[in-house]
């Protein structure tokens, strides 16, 4: 898809709105309706990976130091990771105001 969603006209829509490119849903930014975001004190992290298992979005990955962290492009801020973390690494804080109309940034 050459055009971004905000540039698509009705003439660009595929028959029946069919998505012909497998995996294209990964481009959809579902992190932009978040009202809270996770913050980390990695000093407490025991790298157990429970947060990754419980994350309903599947957006938690292991960073280069082996700590588990959410991809903020997809994180919806549900706070389940903070609730489940046995060593209280994660604290949810209010999300700052951002321009929700900007896509893909």
């Amino acid at each position: 898809m050459a055009k971004s969603e905000s540039e698509l006209t009705w003439k660009d829509i595929e028959v029946g709105c069919i998505a012909t490119e497998p995996g294209s849903a990964a481009r959809y930014k579902c992190g932009d309706w978040r009202s809270q975001r996770p913050t980390y004190d990695f000093n407490k992290c025991i790298k157990c990976g429970l947060c990754q298992i419980f994350c309903p979005e599947g957006c938690i990955y292991q960073n280069e130091k082996g700590h588990f962290e959410a991809n903020m492009y997809y994180c919806k801020g549900c706070g389940i990771c903070a609730k489940e973390c046995p060593t209280k690494v994660i604290t949810m804080v209010e999300e700052e105001e951002t321009d929700v109309n900007k896509n893909g940034d």
């Binding site: 698509l8 709105c17 069919i18 998505a19 012909t20 497998p22």
Partner: peptide, 20 residues
């Protein structure tokens, strides 16, 4: 030749989809 049918249409494309 995988494709997805009946996916969701957020506000940014729904109007275009219905007009098409």
């Amino acid at each position: 030749k995988p494709l997805a049918m009946g996916d969701f249409g957020p506000p940014i494309v729904y109007t275009e989809a219905k007009w098409a």
